[in-house]
């Protein structure tokens, strides 16, 4: 069997307006469940996925921050890109538990990945 590959998943879209965050989640847990090493990074508008207090009941959709909060249970690591948080006038204080990374740490994650899959 070939050595385990590392896949970096970049999630760049707001929850709810596009299916991107939800579909990205399915790929994250799907690939992690198949034994691939997954680093999932929320960046740009994707950082809103990590914001606590979401209530999409008025949209008839499932809440996403709580499912992303459980990614570690599937063996995937979750990262939030702090420059994207600051640019949007948000604060990490209101976010689910995750690893906070800056541009340099994101570059390192890219360099350490075999493949990068973007959900934009």
């Amino acid at each position: 069997m070939s050595p385990q590959k590392t896949i970096l998943i970049l999630l760049r879209s707001c929850p709810y307006g596009m299916a991107t965050a939800a579909e990205g989640y399915r790929v994250i847990i799907g690939l992690a469940g198949m034994g691939l090493r997954i680093h999932a990074v929320l960046l740009e508008d994707g950082v809103l996925v990590a914001l606590k207090g979401q209530n999409p009941s008025g949209l008839g959709m499932h809440e996403l921050s709580q499912v992303f909060a459980k990614l570690t249970e599937f063996g995937a690591d979750l990262y939030v890109h702090t420059p994207s948080v600051t640019e949007r006038g948000l604060s990490e204080a209101g976010f689910i538990d995750s690893n906070l990374i800056d541009d340099e740490e994101l570059k390192d994650l890219i360099t350490s990945a075999d493949h990068v899959i973007t959900f934009n």
Binding site: S2, K5, I7, S13, M18, T20, R26, V27, G30, L31, G33, M34, G35, L36, H115, V116, I117, T118, F119, N120
Partner: peptide, 21 residues
Amino acid sequence: AGMAVLARFARDCDRFLSFGF
């Protein structure tokens, strides 16, 4: 096909390209 196949593709390929929005 499900995620098992996507996982196989990702595991076996040398280059991965993703096209979205």
